[in-house]
Write a protein that binds this DNA or RNA. Structure first.
Lengths: 213, 213
DNA sequence: CAAATTTTGTGAAAGGAGTCACATAATTGA
DNA sequence: TCAATTATGTGACTCCTTTCACAAAATTTG
């Protein structure tokens, strides 16, 4: 398997295959063909095979793919077979929601810390919402706590005006991955990865499609 | 301006230009060049011009673009110059968060209704969080209320098991646009538009980049 | 007022991504 | 054991997107 640049679209689809394979596994199927998986994921069957081909050979000709093995292989590729430790910074409405959003927790993405500039005002609300309350810590302890708790991903849920400075703090704390929910573009140095999640972009997209169809 | 299929990537970038232009307008700039806008949006300058060229000519050679006019034109293209009336279905943690998420409201996307299968248990929480409380209505009144309040977009924030049946209800109520936050793929008939927002897909993406760099 | 400068709009080239079609390999059944 | 069947892996092709490069148009300067 020699090196090649992997398209981002391929990675997104692998995540989709992963979700579908979990459903297929739940349903008790032991083997699945690229055609079946493709139908379920609403993509082309050749696409499924091409995507997998970037990383090796996982199927058996004339048979298909062993569901359990393929799922495990894809998770290994994505890096979603390990546990990822995350922190939420900015415990407003969105931050609180993420803290109690079950679908993060059922997977291997664990929120193990919460930070805010004004912790006392939010401590009550947060612990009330969770079985295991996450203590909200003052942001000036971020670097220290990030080391202590081996945090690898930071979720920025502050107002946009604070997003970049929070990103800078995360970089300083060597938190390599950032997911930014604030509606402003943030910049991080080489070696760090930042992804933006702009609800308004998605809504604009929807608005366009609704206006022009 | 004759018809042509517009790439989805172009629409996403227009939304980005729109956000950047608002910042530029705030900063008091009257004119902007494609190069300046491109730098700010972290894209290629020719890309900016090509994207705009799909819809007409908006600039002046040797000068650039009038910020106010271009912003207004882009909003017209996206359909984000009009007010969009939305409903949230499923008032759990995420639904509540969306209800009080300021960045929806500051724009032209207005949440004007909230539905749940068990309204009494959530009425208190929601109204407490908002200046103008949105009454949570039982889902069996969705069709009726959607008509009444002219709802055009539905935000699905139910558990995944309910997502498709909620989507079916929205289709029945002729709500043409759907934004699905539940981690399961939903299907809608021709003439309707559904977009999925999967946090785990984005996290998987981040995990991959962190694992392989 | 004409030459120099700036910046758009766009045809052409380059680069990626998705689909097709088929050789290859495994399995099944007679 | 061999033909028929099934489904993968992949080279070739097509389609779409991005970037380059330059003519055209507006402005500025001497």
């Amino acid at each position: 398997m020699k090196y090649q640049k992997i398209p981002e679209a391929t990675i997104r689809r692998l995540s989709r295959y992963s979700r579908c394979l979990e459903e297929i596994e739940q349903a008790g199927e032991g083997v699945v063909s690229s055609a079946q998986l493709a139908t379920r994921c609403m993509v082309n069957a050749a696409q499924v095979r091409k995507d997998l081909a970037y990383f090796g050979e996982f199927g058996i000709r004339g048979v298909g793919y062993y569901v359990k093995d393929l799922l495990s292989d894809i998770k290994k590729i994505l890096g979603s077979n390990k546990e990822w430790r995350m922190a939420v910074i900015g415990i407003g409405n969105l931050g609180s929601a993420l803290l109690s959003y079950k679908d993060f927790l059922k997977q291997n993405y664990k929120i193990v810390a919460a930070f805010d500039i004004d912790p006392p005002s939010v401590i009550g609300r947060v612990s009330e919402k969770l079985g295991k309350p996450v203590e909200v810590i003052h942001i000036n302890r971020l670097k220290e706590v990030a080391k202590e708790r081996r945090i690898e991903i930071g979720l920025i849920t502050t107002p946009p005006s604070e997003a970049q400075s929070v990103a800078d703090l995360l970089v300083e704390a060597e938190v390599k991955g950032i997911l930014n929910f604030a509606p402003t573009q943030i910049i991080v140095p080489e070696g760090f990865v930042a992804k933006d999640v702009f609800f308004t972009t998605i809504l604009d997209n929807l608005a366009y499609l609704l206006s022009n169809n």
